[in-house]
């Protein structure tokens, strides 16, 4: 007699078959693998940070940050590079953030879906994928030579701005597109112009997303070496300890990423913890900016009326 489900006695219903056992095993295995992979992402990060801090520990102090390099860069601090990085990142974002956000608003809110819009879109996406060394060459040609800004903070910042601009445009567009269409409809139907709609509804509801995109570019601009190496970052610059505004915009400056490269590879007999300490400061600066951005976002979310 065949023992199919319909004819088996009731107490044998809904029990595990061997197939189900196998499926459950696969389920457990899949879950474990996925969990391991997500942990595997955290582990290297922690390891890197811990290793850096451990190696940097002997020289890491507030004095290391505000002191200038001494004895042919083999000793002392990193103040000129630290402040130089702040200059470069600050100026480049002051240029690229407003330009990028406003361009994205135009593209997302005003531009009709036509060939021009599509070309701009394509350009933005491709520009975001251009390697930074190519941006560096462009900056060298465009700002250093053609615009006659020379090797200077201005040239380097503008090069960084060009590099970050497309990503800011793309992330801002995403943030704007995430604002529900119904909010816009509500606005149009009480006779709001496009600008009023943007001002009153679209921007307040996307500002945290826009900020996130912009802030992420801080770390990118702070970390890049190639674009500034060709256009305005310099090996050494004499600056006084703790001086707040040591550079003019038409001068070259030192920068953390560049400094890290030189002390790690170009200068003999550097105290071995100095490159690590430089890396820690660079990382710390970026993390501090990110933390500030998160705080700002939370604050904006709670005070949505701008």
């Amino acid at each position: 007699m065949t023992q199919d489900a319909a004819s088996s006695p009731a107490r044998n219903r809904f029990v595990k078959t061997s197939l189900v056992v196998r499926k459950e095993f696969a389920e457990q295995l899949a879950k474990a693998v996925f969990f391991l992979m997500s942990v595997a992402m955290v582990a290297p990060l922690l390891a890197i940070v811990a290793y850096l801090v451990w190696r940097a520990w002997p020289v890491l102090s507030w004095n290391f940050v505000v002191d200038v390099p001494r004895r042919g860069m083999t000793d002392g601090g990193i103040w000129p590079a630290f402040i130089g990085t702040l200059y470069l990142v600050g100026i480049s974002l002051a240029v690229s953030a407003p330009t990028g956000v406003l361009a994205a608003v135009y593209l997302n809110e005003y531009a009709k879906e036509n060939w021009l819009n599509r070309i701009v879109n394509l350009a933005v996406i491709n520009l975001a994928g251009v390697p930074s060394i190519v941006h560096a060459l462009f900056g060298l040609g465009a700002f250093v030579y053609a615009a006659r800004f020379g090797y200077s903070i201005l040239s380097a910042s503008l090069t960084l701005a060009i590099m970050t601009l497309p990503v800011i445009i793309a992330s801002t567009r995403e943030a704007l597109a995430a604002v529900p269409a119904s909010f816009r409809e509500a606005c149009w139907n009480v006779g709001a112009t496009r600008w009023q709609t943007i001002r009153a509804v679209v921007l307040p509801n996307s500002i945290s997303g826009i900020l996130t995109g912009v802030i992420l570019q801080v770390s990118r601009a702070a970390g890049e070496t190639a674009p500034i190496m060709f256009t305005g970052a310099v090996f050494f610059k004499a600056v006084e300890k703790g001086q707040l505004l040591p550079y003019r915009l038409d001068e070259q400056c030192m920068a953390l990423s560049m400094h890290l490269y030189t002390v790690a590879t170009q200068v003999p007999n550097v105290k071995e913890s100095i490159p690590y300490a430089t890396a820690v400061v660079l990382l710390g600066t970026v993390l501090a900016v990110n933390a500030a951005a998160i705080a700002l976002r939370v604050w904006l979310r709670n005070h949505k009326k701008w």
Binding site: P180, S182, F183, E185, A186, C187, N189, V190, V201, N205, K304, K305
Partner: peptide, 13 residues
């Protein structure tokens, strides 16, 4: 000429 929609769309205010 005002309009009311299928899904209520109050603004997040």
């Amino acid at each position: 000429v005002g309009m009311v929609f299928q899904r209520p769309n109050p603004l997040p205010l």
